[in-house]
């Protein structure tokens, strides 16, 4: 299909995105609750319950409270969860059970546009969640503005990265239960060991090295830098890593979905 590859992605992918937005809007009041309550729960649990045990944290040469250490990480985790779970479970249900993709593929939409629309939608959910959490966390004074606004484009970038790898898994799992595997082996370790709840320096050297492969490590680190207003050039490496991750997994997701759907 070389002759048409250049025209296989047009802005028509937005039509797929719009479909998901329309469905989302039907239940937005309910969809808004988790990103609103989640940071509250965490901040209360860790701020009130744990910080007495943990005390202050040493971060980039200064002492900060434990809650302000985890607050930006919560946004990073939420960016990861929202797009990853959207393009795994939710997309899989649409693809496999609801035959939504089959219906779309009988219209002028290409497979590439369907998948792109889904991934961009996943990133949009990350963006919505990040924005709501930002508002909540700002009330506690843990986000510095205007630098904190960079969390929004970060949510899109992180959303594309995790949405792509999620869609990649959707392309290869045999059934919906099999998502347990990437969740258990990929998402959960990242949630715990990406410098989210304790500094990476607390880990043994080899584990630190491994953690640098986790996209969430870079997402969290960027979220902290933007929240604290500590903008510096070395952040470009971390952005670059997330970009690279997306550039690898986005085409892989399309490839696997093509192999799965086009028979």
């Amino acid at each position: 299909m070389i002759e048409t590859s250049s025209t296989r992605i047009s802005k028509r992918f937005l039509r797929v995105w719009q479909r998901n937005l329309k469905v989302y809007k039907k239940s937005w009041k309910i969809s808004f609750i988790p990103p609103f309550l989640e940071p509250l729960f965490y901040l209360i649990a860790f701020g009130v319950g744990m910080s007495g045990l943990v005390g202050e944290i040493h971060h980039q040469g200064s002492q900060i409270s434990y809650v302000s250490f985890i607050a930006p990480a919560l946004i990073g985790v939420s960016i990861m969860y929202n797009s990853f779970f959207e393009t795994t479970y939710a997309s899989f249900v649409r693809m496999y059970y609801q035959k939504t993709f089959d219906a779309m593929l009988a219209t002028p939409l290409s497979l590439e546009e369907v998948i792109t629309g889904e991934i961009v939608w996943g990133a949009t959910k990350s963006l919505i969640a990040a924005a709501i959490m930002m508002v909540v966390i700002s009330f506690f004074g843990f986000i510095r503005f205007p630098e904190g606004l960079l969390l929004l484009p970060l949510a899109i970038l992180g959303g594309i990265a995790f949405g792509s790898i999620g869609m990649f898994f959707s392309g290869i799992v045999a059934n919906i239960e099999m998502f347990n595997l990437p969740v258990f082996l990929f998402i959960t370790p990242m949630f715990l060991f990406s410098g989210t709840f304790f500094p990476l320096e607390n880990l043994p050297h080899w584990a630190q090295q491994a953690a640098f492969l986790f996209p969430l490590t870079h997402l969290t680190s960027l979220a902290r830098a933007f929240s604290y207003g500590q903008i510096h050039l070395s952040l470009l490496w971390e952005i670059g890593y997330l970009l690279l991750f997306s550039i690898i997994f986005f085409p892989l997701a399309i490839l696997k979905m093509r192999q799965r759907l086009i028979k």
């Binding site: 028509r12 039509r15 797929v16 719009q18 479909r19 329309k22 469905v23 039907k26 609801q98 035959k99 939504t100 089959d102 219906a103 779309m104 009988a106 219209t107 002028p108 939409l109």
Partner: peptide
Amino acid sequence: KSRIGVCQQENSLDPDLTVFQNLEVFARY
């Protein structure tokens, strides 16, 4: 594809949408 209409063998209506929205959303494609 923009000039054909297809009824697939398996039901592929969008269960997340109403009757009217199914047509509305499909028209956008």
